[in-house]
Amino acid sequence: MGDAAVLAAAVAGVLALRGVRARKVENLAEAFGTLERSIAVGAPWLPQGSTWGETFERLKGEGVEADWSKMRETLKAYEAFRFGGRPDPVEGKEEVAGLATRIQRGVVGHGPKGKSIRAD
């Protein structure tokens, strides 16, 4: 009886994680849009006035795993598109979307003062 309950809980957990599996994104703008929504759910304690650079620093400081030097490079390319009128780059979109998924799944890092980066 007890084993069945544990199994049912494990299955429910896997299904819940599958519900927030990495979304396929077309470009970097879409990937950052996804990240924006994930942060609103998974790390709502981040100050509203944070730039992407500051957000990355905070997430890194909180132990969120990512290739942060690559994320920095991707951000540079994204900002060149966003504010400098360059073409929308495609490189790095998977990493950004992957980070969004990890934040939304709540399986990485911890927020300040014990607040977990975890979706309710």
């Binding site: 950052f32 924006e36 100050p47 509203q48 006035g49 944070s50 730039t51 992407w52 966003r82 504010f83």
Partner: peptide, 10 residues
């Protein structure tokens, strides 16, 4: 403090 409140374009 104002800068932490005002959302920058992202």
């Amino acid at each position: 403090e104002i800068l932490t409140r005002v959302k920058p374009p992202r």
